[in-house]
Design a protein around this nucleic acid. Structure first.
Lengths: 232, 232
DNA sequence: GGTCGGCAGACTGTATACCAATGTTCCCCC
DNA sequence: GGGGGAACATTGGTATACAGTCTGCCGACC
């Protein structure tokens, strides 16, 4: 197997002077590099190397890598380092199994909450997505979609669910980056339908809609992924 | 608020010379101390203090604490340290929401797998629990119960689900430590029923049984917890 | 008497240097 | 060409140092 070293280019350390902790920034940075494909599967991440490139010491890097391992982006091998994992078809299926459970739960809880306070933020995301779609702004559409799902989660008002969904969302994004980008219009229709179901305040309806949508996405995505990913 | 410092006694560092990594051992050790109540809610965990007591340096402690935060056992405050969290009624409800989704999923997947290979390990756990119950070995019963749920998870054959359930299981144990211990006999009956449903190879049946059982447990547990835990 | 400001202490966040254990590579020798 | 072993690379873990910041307290001033 061809063991690549960590990619040389585009590693400039943008770690701005925010108030977020260094390990967190490092973690986010590496995660983005993996999701957008800059760091390919099989790449070894050496902590001293990363520390040097990012202009930090080993300690924050050492704290960032286990997080990425917990999220499934890298696999840590004792005394070897962290390797960017290969997404397999099996993992994609496992991921959809989880989503079918948890996103349905999120929709159900969101609908329950929506009875008390109407989901204005949800409608806002929808509108933002529509505007971006009409402007042909693919990036804006994706951002609005992510915000939409984030709002459902926030609406569900279950911090534990939110913390569990965080790694899931990262992996879903990773998967979707491998797929040809989907039609923004049908995406919007789906979100509109889900939004309506949640806004109706009927948990069972919202759950059913969310479930049906994920199953549909699952089938079409896996059909494509079967041609792209290794079995396991 | 009365800010307790880290408890002085029973902190002897038993960290054996296993091959498991130091942060992992530290994490497990502190988690047990929290679950069994040695470390009360509100206790501040100071990393230098912990490091000294456990006879390790600060670095492995620093890597263990974020894990415990992700699992919900402590809350880290920047530049203050980690505080043992207070379990609230809200969190208990959130936890049951998640379990209703994920344990049902686990049962469903396990039943699907059981069609190909009969769940002998599951039956074994059941038998072990029965033996422990007849011997009046409460600790053995609990261990067998934990093993039973672990086997379902293993049977479900979804590594992502297993990794997600890990923190959940810890919190469930934490919760159950607050409750008066349940009747081993009715526990066994429930597990027998769930085991049969899984062994039947019918995913929908297994899911329905698991769901019904969790809902039942939820109601009785929360009734007790309402008298024990703060609202939020 | 109450409130504001500053001082001291405590603790984390991060950096640096170091050693030990272990896995890898590659060269030399047979 | 293949096996053995030495040199190297890399992590796991420790010790130490220093800066930033938060807390709590004490005193001064209104």
């Amino acid at each position: 197997m061809d063991k690549k070293s960590v990619a040389a280019p585009d590693f400039a350390a943008p770690l701005g002077t925010t108030n977020r902790s260094l390990p967190e920034q490092i973690c986010d940075h590496i995660r983005e590099l993996i999701i957008d494909g800059t760091l390919e599967a099989g790449t070894w991440l050496r902590e001293r190397d990363l520390a040097q490139r990012l202009n930090v010491s080993r300690i924050p890097v050492r704290e960032a890598l286990p997080v990425l391992e917990a999220e499934g982006f890298v696999r840590m091998v004792p005394r070897r380092g962290a390797m960017v994992t290969t997404l397999t078809l099996r993992e994609a299926e496992n991921l959809y199994d989880i989503r079918e459970s948890l996103e349905v739960l999120a929709a159900r809880l969101a609908a329950r909450q929506a009875r008390h306070s109407p989901p204005v933020a949800l409608l806002e995301c929808l509108e933002r997505g529509r505007a971006a779609a009409e402007a042909g702004d693919r990036h804006g559409v994706e951002a609005a979609n992510a915000a939409f799902h984030g709002e459902i989660l926030k609406l569900s008002d279950n911090p534990l669910l939110q913390s569990i969904m965080k790694p899931i969302k990262g992996r879903v994004r990773w998967l979707f980056h491998l797929l040809p980008s989907r039609d923004p219009h049908s995406q919007l229709l789906k979100h509109q339908e889900l939004c309506d179901a949640i806004a109706s305040g009927n948990p069972d309806l919202a759950a059913a809609v969310a479930y049906a949508q994920i199953v549909r996405t699952r089938e079409s995505s896996l059909a494509v992924l079967r041609t792209l990913l290794p079995e396991s």
